[in-house]
């Protein structure tokens, strides 16, 4: 018994140690620094309490980032899941070459967000624009990335392209775990395909939806790399009377604050992001869990 415990502890030690040192300890340090005026270097650290938090919600750029991050997340949760669920239905049907399609849809996920941002930036700024010019399609003549009202949608398209292949795999696995007999029985009873999908498939794979919604929610909320390379926060727009960056999501707002040597303020923003993320994710999981069916 004692021996077994020792083995357990030994095996757990590396991960627990890493988790403590890389996640838990810095988290509490971060909480502390968010209540100071530290600039990242100076040895003089003064405690200022909740001063940073108090002014955050009167700063137009931060409020704007918060709002568009919620918008971006909402768009993505819908778009990514619809697309990936549709893809999973396609690649589990009796399609020729379906393994090829599975691999193909998954490939974008393997490209890193940085590279992918640059690729799509080139597509949006050069390819689409010159296509629009040569074919006189007015809507394409100015880049989608240079229009404040369309830039979030352009980012969502890229995000969908990147993540739907990954979520497709989760859905495929879930579809395959449903006993074929259920679908066959329904078919024999005369249920049409759409009916079978909505009344058997979707309720049976509710746990896959829980995971997928959670993943899209958190990844969109924390989106940084693609945001950084695709739009760099641009173009500018007006919000609460001040010029702000139209596509600067929360994570990038934090980054820009930190690179301006306002470490403590950036840390306070990061804490807000953390709290918002936890609240939203908990609500989502709680709601989804209620819909799950036990086999």
């Amino acid at each position: 018994m004692n021996n077994k415990r020792l083995v357990n502890i030994l095996f757990l030690f590396p991960t627990v140690f890493a988790f403590l040192m890389i996640i838990v300890v810095p988290f509490f340090f971060g909480l502390y620094y968010s209540m100071t005026d530290w600039n990242g270097v100076s040895p003089n650290i003064n405690f200022v309490g909740f001063q940073h938090y108090a002014k955050l919600f009167s700063m137009p750029d931060f409020v704007h980032s918060f709002v568009i991050t919620i918008g971006f997340t909402a768009i993505n949760v819908v778009l990514v899941n619809i697309v990936s669920f549709a893809l999973s239905l396609i690649v589990t049907s009796n399609l020729k070459l379906r393994n090829f399609y599975r691999a193909g849809f998954f490939v974008p996920y393997l490209i890193g967000g940085i590279v992918l941002g640059y690729i799509w930036q080139f597509l949006f700024n050069n390819i689409f624009v010159s296509m629009g010019k040569s074919m006189s399609i007015t809507i394409l003549e100015a880049s989608f990335l240079s229009r404040p009202e369309s830039v979030i949608w352009a980012m969502s398209v890229v995000n969908t392209w990147q993540y739907s292949g990954y979520l497709m795999l989760i859905y495929v696995a879930s579809i395959q775990s449903i006993p074929a007999s259920l679908m066959e029985a329904a078919q024999v009873d005369g249920a049409r395909y759409v009916t079978r999908v909505f009344h058997i498939l979707i309720p049976m794979m509710a746990n896959a939806f829980t995971i997928s919604l959670f993943l899209t929610l958190t990844t969109s909320f924390k989106q940084f790399d693609m945001n950084f390379t695709l739009t760099n926060g641009g173009p500018a727009t007006r919000f609460m009377g001040s010029p702000v960056k139209a596509s600067q999501l929360l994570a990038m707002n934090i980054f820009d604050t930190a690179t301006a040597n306002k470490m403590a303020e950036a840390q306070a923003k990061a804490v807000i992001l953390f709290v918002a993320l936890v609240v939203v994710a908990l609500i989502q999981v709680a709601v989804n869990k209620r819909k799950e069916v036990e086999m």
């Binding site: 404040p148 173009p235 500018a236 010029p243 960056k245 040597n261």
Partner: peptide, 19 residues
């Protein structure tokens, strides 16, 4: 100028004026 003034404050103003 204070750090970040060009990038976070003036930058968006010029971008908006260009639009």
């Amino acid at each position: 100028l204070p750090d970040g003034a060009g990038q976070n404050v003036f930058g968006p103003i010029y971008d908006l004026f260009a639009q």
